[in-house]
Design a protein around this nucleic acid. Structure first.
Lengths: 331, 331
DNA sequence: CTGTTAGCGCTTTCAA
DNA sequence: TTGAAAGCGCTAACAG
């Protein structure tokens, strides 16, 4: 059996309720007493019993995170950051790699204080949790897909920014490398925005405009780009759907001795620090990781406090210009 | 407030302890009563309060899993399976992507019933948990690296099997594609076994024997193999360090129009079902996923029950011959 | 078979 | 400033 507040109380010669107060830094305890109790608890290696604490406070101090099945760098970094940020607020982040429905059920049973769901799967349907859920559920994804509050990174806006940037530089043959056939709404939103914007600027949409990859892996990005860059009707600029893809694209260009940005401009989705550190510092669009993290954490905390509905949030993407884009090469 | 056993008791006109028994399927409750209570609890949507349950039973019914930082397919599949298997035993698996030390601390504080650590990082040191840990900690990795009970997949034995198989087919120029420079003991064990075995069979060790990749990604596997296969002193057989690498290796071979296994034999580490489904069904070595899962779960359960020390376990790898290996081509 | 009782370890009034 | 007491929701003797 581990040490409890009673043990400390006995040792300190006070009642256990005083210990409880002292440990919670209550102002109702004399400084000296408090210090003595703190010392003793430290000495005894006291660890509060979470179960008991939860029972009485009716809080679990945990939040459940439903993790996307597919691993990529950006989401992985996101979760790590959220995890650390929530820790600062005393919340422990639990991850589940189960199916969304199952994971939510588990977290519900565990009485997590909130659930964060990364909507990243292809065409999942889950509507049954609408009302029965007493605890707040926050989605990260595209708003409107679920009845829940959603943090939406407005991926379409990001693609708009990218194209605007390229067009302003004078590019006309722009390709999008990404999950063009995916039913994943996070991906298809980018694709839709891409074609829309091309149309808006009266740019040609050819078979070389939408370059499909099966996954968002570096590997696939590399493979498809190598094909693309030896085709007859090469683009002067590529928009990449993710950080991982970008690594592959860049590698393909390097290998074919195509200078970036002189001969080929690249602009990537995913506004993360790592873009800076690629062989060619990468111009990127997207909501910055920091902002996604801080907004998510803040929203989560708000939802937990005031169990009232919180409106969905649209995060505004930015364009970060680095060294991978320039005016198109003379042909 | 959610519904408690007291609510059910009131509704059913029995005492709450009877409800508790009924809900726990105790034989001490009359069938009729039990059924009625079950019906009511269902009707009311009763969800047991985990905190309370934990408090009294002094168990959390959770096990914490420290997840390796690097994502690859095989470990990912492993964790998913363990997760599901533990669920059958009423345990909820919590994942932490924090540093090992931090994660263990968290799980300790949460009073998990056991902690499973995937030792997958490069040269981490953590010796401080040796005694203070009241709850069982199980490692998955290479035995001897930590003071804890470890499930060891004897990767060296797997490589032995691979080489034995290749040698028996008549191969002499064998290359190992893997993390040859990694400090990760899981990887270096394979490498060490590889060179040892080559020596044992008096096979030449050249620069083309150990093919280093930076990561275990498909991408890197592809890249390095393409280089390897156009070199002057090509191997007749490749041993791949992981499933992901193998995908890349296979792809490189296909692209260079090298027939597998006619012109090149490939044998892969990671004994998982997916090997069957590659373009060329892959001969593989390693402990089968099923066995790793069942052993891990069983050990975990045992450790939880009898808080006595459990000895480390060495799992025996198998060779699964499929279609990617054959006698070497005539030169 | 069913109910009563006593906690599990902690927080939180309420008295002293 | 401290202590006493109640109770969070549940399980587990023990008594009927």
């Amino acid at each position: 059996m581990s040490v409890t507040i009673k043990d400390i109380a006995e040792r300190a010669g006070v009642s256990f309720s005083t210990v409880s107060k002292a440990l919670n830094d209550s102002p109702l305890v004399h400084m000296d007493t408090k210090q003595r109790i703190l010392d003793i608890s430290l000495e005894l290696g006291y660890q509060p019993n979470t179960a008991a604490r939860r029972l009485v406070s009716n809080k679990s101090w945990t939040i459940g995170v439903v993790w996307p099945s597919v691993e990529r760098f950006a989401p992985s970094a996101l979760i790590t950051r959220i995890n650390n940020e929530m820790a600062k607020h005393n919340y422990t982040t639990l991850l589940s790699i189960n199916q969304t429905e199952l994971a939510i059920e588990t977290f519900l049973r565990l009485q997590c204080d909130a659930i964060l769901v990364f909507y990243d799967r292809e065409g999942e349907e889950l509507q049954n949790f609408t009302k029965q859920s007493v605890i707040p559920i926050l989605y990260y994804g595209v708003n409107g897909l679920t009845p829940f509050t959603t943090i939406d990174a407005t991926r379409s806006k990001a693609i708009e920014l990218a194209i605007e940037h390229l067009v302003s530089l004078g590019h006309e043959r722009i390709a999008y490398v990404g999950n063009t056939n995916s039913k994943d709404p996070l991906q298809s939103e980018k694709v839709a925005a891409f074609t829309e914007q091309l149309a808006k600027y009266h740019l040609p949409i050819t078979i070389e405009s939408l370059i499909p990859v099966n996954s968002l892996d570096t590997y696939d990005g590399y493979m498809i780009t190598k094909q693309l860059l030896v085709s007859s009707n090469q683009p002067t600029a590529i928009i990449s759907g993710s950080y991982d893809l970008t690594k592959g694209i860049l590698r393909a260009a390097t290998e074919l001795q195509i200078q970036v940005p002189e001969q080929l401009s690249i602009i990537s989705y995913d506004n993360i620090q790592q873009m800076e550190e690629l062989e060619v510092p990468m111009t990127a669009v997207g909501v910055s990781l920091e902002e996604i993290v801080s907004t998510t954490v803040r929203t989560l905390l708000t939802m937990i406090e005031q169990k009232d509905p919180v409106p969905s949030i649209y995060l505004v993407p930015e364009l970060v210009i680095r060294s991978s884009t320039s005016i198109p090469a003379r042909i």
